[in-house]
Write a protein that binds this DNA or RNA. Sequence first.
DNA 1: ATTTTTACTACGACAGACATACTACGACAG
DNA 2: CTGTCGTAGTATGTCTGTCGTAGTAAAAAT
Lengths: 117, 117
Amino acid sequence: MTEISSDVIRGYNDTMILFLLRKEPSYGYELSKMIKTLSDGKYIIKETTLYSAFTRMEKNGFVESFVQESMDTGKKRTYYRITEEGRRYYREKREEWLLTKEVVEKFITKENEDGND
Amino acid sequence: MTEISSDVIRGYNDTMILFLLRKEPSYGYELSKMIKTLSDGKYIIKETTLYSAFTRMEKNGFVESFVQESMDTGKKRTYYRITEEGRRYYREKREEWLLTKEVVEKFITKENEDGND
DNA sequence: ATTTTTACTACGACAGACATACTACGACAG
DNA sequence: CTGTCGTAGTATGTCTGTCGTAGTAAAAAT
């Protein structure tokens, strides 16, 4: 196994997207490439997962969308911009992640740490 | 927020249960106490989550159940014992966790690391 | 001229977690 | 002797995020 699925990190897709949007607005296709690159190809988000995340987050007020013709290609794209609410949510999820990691790691041994491997 | 929910670590409840069962067989109520203790009270697994995990894992062949009267109280309890398949699954999930952690942490900044907080 | 890449949308299925509710027995307090 | 608390579960249905499949359409590459 060299690649993880969205399902494994269920609930953290929104967080990852928001992380990227904090720097500047972006759109689906670009974000999917950024996620792949930043994760060294270890995580490839599914299109449906990504676009349904946008819908959900816009409904929740974490992002705002705006359509813009790209200057290079002339194609219209739906960009997403993070809101203050979205930044707040990101910070919350960061704290949650740190706690979650702490807890899970109490149940994850280092390789051959005990005699049970 | 000082407590996490099962939903946050969706998919790792089975792993946490198996971790505890690797040492010796146990039963629902005891495991829920152990999970609470080991996590320093930060994670309290829901009864329904726990018992449905047993059902699922037994179906998957990760655990085997046996009923036993406890010597102290004389009450019958359903104990669960981890199988070889279960141990294998635990090791897989451990690897998956390490990878997941690595990926997620690329999207989680240290407090005030960048100017976006 | 055709295929690939870009950039999405629609729809239904699934699985794990959740809420709610119910059972049953023993201990122990009031 | 009655009621609550702790122990040890079972039953049932709902919710949510992800996934599978499919389809559209324009631009870029071959």
